[in-house]
Nucleic acid binder design. Structure first.
Lengths: 151, 151
DNA sequence: GGTGGGGCGTCCCATCATGGGAAGGTCAAG
DNA sequence: CTTGACCTTCCCATGATGGGACGCCCCACC
């Protein structure tokens, strides 16, 4: 089967097929004399596995691990579970972040009249912390300590 | 103040300051004779506004709109509210997506023994929809090399 | 045996916001 | 004048994906 057919059969785009191959997620496909990639049903199954894993939001790195575990009949389910659990934890963290943003912004939006008047609690919140035109913001010593990153 | 001081005072990195300038989010900064960018307290306030807006997960495009609304004393709060509401809707949609992923994967992980045995509901779910392939998922072990993953 | 349309190949670019780093100029303190 | 911190611009990388250009290939149709 051609790349287009494998793509249609698996639900993974041909573009992604080439990309997955280039990153080593799937093995290098056989080629016809003309250089066309050739796939079989087993490849399509792997691709479906990958697509399904992507639907869980798993990263390529984790999917790579899962695929090799999947193809290893001796795998300990512990390994699989660990990967899934890590991902769930990350999803939960992300959800918590987004929920905090969402709740805060929604509260602000609820408090906003939303009419032709310029007064707006959203903007008032956003500009909070902006120093009014008082004295200098930076102290003479301030520029020294640049503590690492801020994620 | 120069870019490093403005960065420290605003919480926006110098790198991002240049980037925001290049994309037109903030106006082109004045320069010293040597070419150094110069900022004042008003710039720092704008930067803080931007940083705060970023904390709500707003896109640069929406922040650009918000900044111009913020600086327009005649703005209708309706405009601001609309932007916030759109973003809240997108956040909710994203949260729903992530929550669905999270719940589904978590259920699978919960059902997984997580021991040394190879049987695993997570992998079984992932391979669901894969066409049966003559009783085997991958071709006979001896013929195909496993592309020496080793890691 | 031609030919045309569509599939395939590679390579480059863009996303979105951010950081890393190199090469070279500038400033301020010693 | 030296030194070191800071500034400049430019390039690259992220993560997964799509878009597009250009050129070759394949097959059906005549």
């Amino acid at each position: 089967m051609n790349i287009g057919q494998a793509a249609a059969a698996s639900g993974v785009s041909a573009k992604m097929l080439r990309y997955y191959e280039s990153t080593g997620l799937i093995p290098t496909a056989e080629r016809t004399d003309a250089g066309y990639r050739v796939y079989d049903r087993a490849d399509v199954n792997t691709l479906r596995f990958i697509r399904r894993a992507r639907e869980f939001g798993l990263s390529m790195a984790r999917i790579k691990l899962l695929v090799s575990l999947w193809q290893d009949r001796e795998r300990p389910s512990r390994e699989v579970k660990r990967i899934a659990t890590e991902h769930v934890a990350e999803l939960r963290a992300r959800i918590a972040e987004l929920t905090a943003m969402c709740d805060a912004l929604d509260a602000l939006a609820e408090a906003c009249h939303g009419d032709q008047r310029p007064d707006c609690p959203i903007l008032r919140d956003l500009e909070a912390g902006a120093e009014p035109d008082r004295s200098r913001i930076i102290s003479p010593v301030a520029s020294r300590s640049r503590t690492g990153t801020a994620g």
